[in-house]
Design a binder for these strands. Structure first.
Lengths: 179, 179
DNA sequence: CCGATATCGTTTACGGGTAAAACACCTGTT
DNA sequence: AACAGGTGTTTTACCCGTAAACGATATCGG
């Protein structure tokens, strides 16, 4: 335990990532472990938050990728093609095909062929699909609010802002980086 | 397209998450979308950063879960059992078994049985395994540093601090939350 | 009008993860 | 000693995602 004070309220010493960083420092002293403190934590937060987020979904028998797909249809408000859905949910076309098959069987979405271009399909929510999204979403958000309440509102705002800045840059420029 | 992009330099309006939030607000006005601005961004950042992180690994023919396993052995400095590795890498025992099989075949780790308790195995890095970790890690960190340099150092520090605080709380208390 | 090329969506083969069962072994109790 | 129950690891069956190949259709140039 490197943490100096009896209180464990030390800003960044109480998580697993800082323990990992300390281990690396012991093995490779002087290594610039700065990036780990952000990337490691982002990954770990994502894992934990997803796990928490999934609880409300399982009750509805939906996986998160499925819910993402339904959510994309709900929030855009209009029909989307499978390709649109792939872009909107950041997943591959093949994955969308599979999910659509299951969601169609469950009666949550419907498909119709385009009249002009017979390659493309249009997908829309059924009434049942819209209801399930509208039922889960508030529950989901309430749960998320509870989980995040471990940070006071001011810090939540700061965190959201910094993440937004980072994300904006990453989304804009990541394609430009080549190893 | 809701994004009015003559210029996209607005603090938190330039990422996909804020676009999604605007869509939800249009459909469900007044919904508290606050949590999305953190959780959505954490998830998306994790996805993009991982994708970036994987590039240096692929050159060595390793997946990130495999590298995590090797890294756990390297940074602890001593042998670990499969169970230890599972805990250390936040994955299931079955997954560890599979990875160990492959890494052993590639000659990056070795196993030996415990002399006292013949259920347990002890895993250690081979010389080749240690070399591959020590070769990749600085490269990995340099790459991460480059990716993160879109944020100035001060903000990187703030972000790391806030994430550490959140993560510390989540790791401490998430088990206690029940849906 | 016809062939080359691009695009959309699906299918296929496969790798990797998981939960649950199975297995091997230890430990405490009687 | 024997058995019940617990623990460490592996195996099994299965689900899901992906990359790459594939059909079907559209579009463009000649």
């Amino acid at each position: 335990m490197t943490a100096p004070n009896g209180r464990q309220a030390d800003a960044t010493g109480g998580d697993t990532v800082s323990a990992v960083v300390r281990q690396w420092q012991a093995v490779h002293p002087g290594l610039d472990t700065g990036p780990m403190e952000i990337i490691g934590r982002v990954n770990r937060c994502a894992a934990l938050l997803q796990q928490a987020e999934d609880a409300p979904l399982r009750r509805a028998g939906l996986s998160r990728p499925e819910f993402d797909l339904l959510g994309a249809l709900r929030r855009t408000g209009h029909e989307l093609t499978p390709g649109d859905l792939a872009r909107e949910t950041f997943s591959s076309g093949a994955a969308v095909t599979k999910r659509l098959k299951q969601l169609t069987e469950r009666g949550l979405v419907e498909r119709r062929g385009d009249t002009r271009d017979r390659r493309v399909a249009h997908v829309r929510l059924t009434d049942a699909g819209r209801e399930i999204v509208d039922g889960i979403l508030p529950e989901q958000l309430a749960y998320e609010t509870a989980v995040l309440s471990v940070l006071d509102p001011h810090r939540q705002g700061e965190l959201a802002g910094l993440l937004g800045e980072l994300l904006g840059q990453l989304e804009g420029r990541l394609g430009a980086l080549r190893a």
